[in-house]
Write a protein that binds this DNA or RNA. Sequence first.
DNA 1: CCATGTGCTGCAACCGCTCTCAAAGCTTTC
DNA 2: GAAAGCTTTGAGAGCGGTTGCAGCACATGG
Lengths: 376, 376
Amino acid sequence: MGGTPLVAFAQHGNAEVGGTIYDTVALPSARSVRQEGSGVVRFTVGHSAPTLEDVARIAGVSRATVSRVVNGGTLVAAKTTEAVREAITQLDYHPNRAARALVTRRTGVIAVIVPETDERVFADPYFPQVYHGALQAFSDSDVQVVLAMSQPGDNASRMVRYLESGHVDGALIASHHGPSLAQALAHSWQPVVFIGDPEVPGVPYIELDNRAAARVATQHLIERGSRRIGTITGPLDMGSARQRLEGFREAMAEAGLDGDLYVEGGYNAQSGQVVEQLLDRAPDLDGVFAANDLMAVTAMGVLQRLGRRVPEDVRIIGFDDASIGRQCTPQLSTMTNPAAEHARAAAELLIEILAGGLPETRNLMAASQLVVRGST
Amino acid sequence: MGGTPLVAFAQHGNAEVGGTIYDTVALPSARSVRQEGSGVVRFTVGHSAPTLEDVARIAGVSRATVSRVVNGGTLVAAKTTEAVREAITQLDYHPNRAARALVTRRTGVIAVIVPETDERVFADPYFPQVYHGALQAFSDSDVQVVLAMSQPGDNASRMVRYLESGHVDGALIASHHGPSLAQALAHSWQPVVFIGDPEVPGVPYIELDNRAAARVATQHLIERGSRRIGTITGPLDMGSARQRLEGFREAMAEAGLDGDLYVEGGYNAQSGQVVEQLLDRAPDLDGVFAANDLMAVTAMGVLQRLGRRVPEDVRIIGFDDASIGRQCTPQLSTMTNPAAEHARAAAELLIEILAGGLPETRNLMAASQLVVRGST
DNA sequence: CCATGTGCTGCAACCGCTCTCAAAGCTTTC
DNA sequence: GAAAGCTTTGAGAGCGGTTGCAGCACATGG
């Protein structure tokens, strides 16, 4: 089994693990990335892979013929084919797709871009759905779908560089903050489809009808009898968050209620805590619309800990229909957000664009559904 | 804000949502990926991006000079540089990295490969750590780290093809089942580092000392007084699962106890349920070593539901030190598995390999720590 | 004033592959 | 037996870059 271990090490910064730790081992200082020039890691690869040329030489034919065998389609004599096949297996030849991409202009790689840190991406159940949907759309093609997220200090440029690099055919972009990425990409030649309004004209996207959904959610609270309703929004640099806030205010205004009771959250579980601020501003709070389930569930916990009964004292409704909303007591009412479907639709739109059979601009608007459970 | 929505649609297969659904909208049949030839999606891109040549023409210089300006380093006259810069911004030129990669043999892209379906990847807290660690290692270089997982029906070939495609410089491979992927890659020219023993000689990897850790865990149960101990293993086609089982049996044998009480799980929460089988086989069960925390927590729940007190009647220890183990009652004792650190170390090893300053084969073995909490 | 040096730029080959076009070999036909 | 028609193959021109090397213009030294 493998070679012999040469180094033994381990580490665990004495972080709060909430228990007693035994068996600690010293940690070596982590070597850092060696750099040269302007922050670029320089690589030099030793061996180089066999090329078409090599195969051709061994098989005693020309490059063109090998290419024909590899790509199929064109007719090549049976025995030639066999000789080439043999040479290919002998050398363990794999075509260099980057070179091929240069001439075919197709890489066979699609990226799902999420301009969030990896922590957020893995913490929020929304992103797996997006990725899953994209994967589905490409499942029976031989496209490789890769996921790229941003790193803590990143601005948009690393992403843009990757997208324009020629290593991907196109991209789906999922959780963008503000129009900067879209702007950078708008005049680029890279086919992209946004999930959520990019706020830049001409850039194709699909989005949930957030405003309508937020109205439905708010109206539902009102119908159930809530009057003093507050909302926890998402980060307001995101279109979806603003739209949900808008929908909330519309519904409140229509009902002749005060729609100014809102506080900004971050779409993450922790920021559900801000419900306390709503409570400070409105001690008679009897309804909460949280812009996603993660925040809603936290808010529910906070309210319950403060002695409020849900839904008797305060009704709560979330957004996204995340599974976590079914694991709390009472179960959370919510608005569906079939992200996987959207991603798939977006991916299919991307495929159309890539196939060239393209309408100018194309935007898709998707509807949401109200799911009533115990919390309202 | 963007163009006008052209299409409105939504969908929600009437899946079990555990609530009442209002506001349903018809769903269009999802268009499927258009295919041609052997399962390959064909793309044709309309516009094409400006090239070096274009820039050179506008700036009135040669391609070589533009290249020099773009890449810096070599000396170019100040006014020439300026002219080129101007042309570049005018055309919004971005170098085609695929073309560059052809000659420099560096793409600036590193892949983290996880041969699991996306559901598993997002469900298990282990993978985010791996990705995070990899990201850290490359954080101050301008390498793009992408994540690729396999699709339900996939065999290894799509992965291998991607890795050998020339679109990535190298890869970290995280949760492989059996040696097939490693074998396919062993004679390839692609620099890869495995996290976990690939079971193929000559392929570099880093791994946790699973056997030793499992021994420590088991010994801990014995020390606390457990005698009739069972284990829930991971999928036994994975080296880590087998090693943890081995460690368990060793510790049991050393203590003169029966080490045959085990049942295979899948490293996912659901498979913690198999603890019932242990109970069937040994009603006097008083200790459980689960090969990861996900299974341990589920097992604890099952046992408690069956009236067993933890740790009074049955002691439970898990593996991985996942956060979920701190959210249950009692809190779960466990073995640490600082996956992020491992991934970072693996990434640094990969960087070394890519830099060419390479030891033949290099394997790293990492230690684990026992964390004692309430469950033992 | 000519030989040298120095600074900057262009030519051209090459990275690995695809694909058009024409040539070569073979059959068929008159 | 030569012309015509196929099938099969190879030569060669790119794809968009990088880079070694030669060449040019101008400044310097003898």
